[in-house]
Design a protein around this nucleic acid. Structure first.
Lengths: 251, 251
DNA sequence: CACCATTTGTCCGTATGTATT
DNA sequence: GAATACATACGGACAAATGGT
């Protein structure tokens, strides 16, 4: 038995059916205090409960799925989603790809935001960090140096490094935002060429950041973060200046 | 005539049909360099172009609509969306409402992020601001004071104030993020009681911020922002303290 | 292994509401 | 008002995936 009040106004409102259904589902989750992973009524049950056709219910579920509010497992059921920032990643990534064709505006702004957050949190990060974190950061920086020496990429270590930085703050939202921004950056940025010089700078910057945290030196931390994003900004500027004139993307 | 390559593998992949359709649509927008407001093929055209049924196409469109990548006008057509951060607002708002029942974790983290961004941008804001902005900020702060004196709310002025602060930076992403955070805050926070004392503090904080910007005093700006979020943090703490102590979660 | 029940995924046909001409 | 084009909504049917017997 599913306790969802049916839609009183039989679609005579200006709002689409699926929108009302989506609201009902969110309401159901809130009222029943459900959390990520908890089971939701089946499509059929939802149809009967809210008095809507299966199509409307499914479309409503799809919009909620896009926001990671619900999660659907084929042949198994519908569940409360993880409430991640996946939607932000999708949305921002698309914006970045769309602007990439003309300018790198979104990417440029993204870099500024990332730098601001890390520098703004400098004091908190340095103060809240502990020895084990220091070890992990230094270790990751060395791994990156080794990868670079072998000519390999070190994106995994880079991502982990920046997430670890914010971990001691205990702010999940900030951590997930940073992860989202990093993901968008990683997807949109590859069109920028990376010179061996910028790679060397990047590796050295991570080492400097790790050392600054370990030494609890706030101003050194801020300078290191500045140095970290410098090569990225430079690449952006250069890409804007001699942009490929006839570079038609392959279909 | 719509030029969208049909889905070669007739759904024999593990990925759902609507997902492939959504990818095709995004690809179509990118390849044709479309921007917000540009028209997309009709549902029927999309069906034939990608070789999928209306249901699949519609569900794909709904997921893209949730991300504001496409926008649908009933009886008119389908268009490229505004690529706003509406999805982030929806997603974060729901998280906030869900966590509100137990703790105010999301809201608390949100406040920290907002404060970090504004303080992190302090120097840039102060330096990039011009006289007209100073006037607008001071004016808004006075409007808020007048509203408070009349016992009215001043949420519109508050929102405008914080958005204006970041405007001189010319970073659209940052502005939209701030707007999104503000919106989430405004939706989730009302459950916190506002005392006349905290209202007075808030109004005074906005005045102090405006004066700091006008005086181009960075450290005063940072202190004012600190003072601005102080009453909010205090409300959060108090709401957490006298919460039902024996609250065993119902099974 | 085969078999079955449950649940979501996809497709089709039809009717209705909306907006433009 | 009529005609057209379009998205919205419904109901039924079958396919595909999952879990258990």
């Amino acid at each position: 038995m599913v306790e969802i009040a049916p839609i009183s106004r039989p679609s005579r409102g200006a709002t689409p059916r699926r929108h009302e259904v989506a609201e009902r589902i969110k309401q159901y989750i809130l009222q029943n205090r459900l959390g990520p992973g908890d089971a939701l009524p089946t499509e059929a049950e939802l149809c009967e409960a809210v008095g809507a056709s299966r199509s409307s219910v499914r479309e409503a579920i799809k919009t909620l799925t896009a926001l990671d509010i619900v999660e659907v497992r084929h042949g198994h059921g519908t569940y409360v989603g993880r409430l991640s920032l996946a939607a932000l990643v999708e949305s921002l990534t698309f914006r970045g790809l769309l602007s990439r064709a003309d300018d790198f505006r979104v990417l440029s702004e993204l870099v500024e935001v990332r730098q601001t957050v890390e520098q703004g949190m400098a004091a908190s990060i340095v103060n809240a960090s502990d020895e084990s974190l220091h070890g992990e950061l230094l270790d990751l920086a060395e791994q990156m140096a080794e990868c670079a020496a072998r000519g390999e990429s070190f994106i995994e270590q880079d991502r982990e490094f920046h997430l670890l930085l914010l971990e001691p703050l205990g702010n999940e939202l900030l951590t997930q935002l940073t992860a989202a921004f990093w993901d968008v950056h990683a997807i949109v940025a590859p069109s920028l060429g990376t010179t061996s010089e910028s790679v060397r700078e990047t590796v050295e910057a991570h080492r400097a950041i790790a050392r600054a945290v370990a030494a609890r030196d706030v101003s050194a931390f801020i300078r290191s973060v500045e140095a970290h994003y410098a090569p990225v900004r430079r690449n952006l500027r250069e890409s804007l200046e001699h942009r490929d004139p006839g570079g038609a993307p392959a279909g």
